[in-house]
Amino acid sequence: MAERERKQRPAPKERVEEEVEDLAPPKQGEKIKEELDDLLDEIDSVLEENAEDFVKSYVQKGGQ
């Protein structure tokens, strides 16, 4: 557990990742957009129907 966390981390790596992203050719940008569209389509399929009624019906008793 701890080891994995250490491997994933470091801050500098994050910066590198970002630079790569900035330099990404447009093709990759399109691919990312496609992936996002697919993800939103997938989420559409599990979203509760009739958003307005659904949200309205979610009423909780207050807690702590």
Binding site: I43, V46, L47, E48, A51, E52, F54, V55, Y58
Partner: peptide, 11 residues
Amino acid sequence: DDPKLALLDLQ
């Protein structure tokens, strides 16, 4: 203020 965003927030 679209209810769909409130739904996404909840879900």
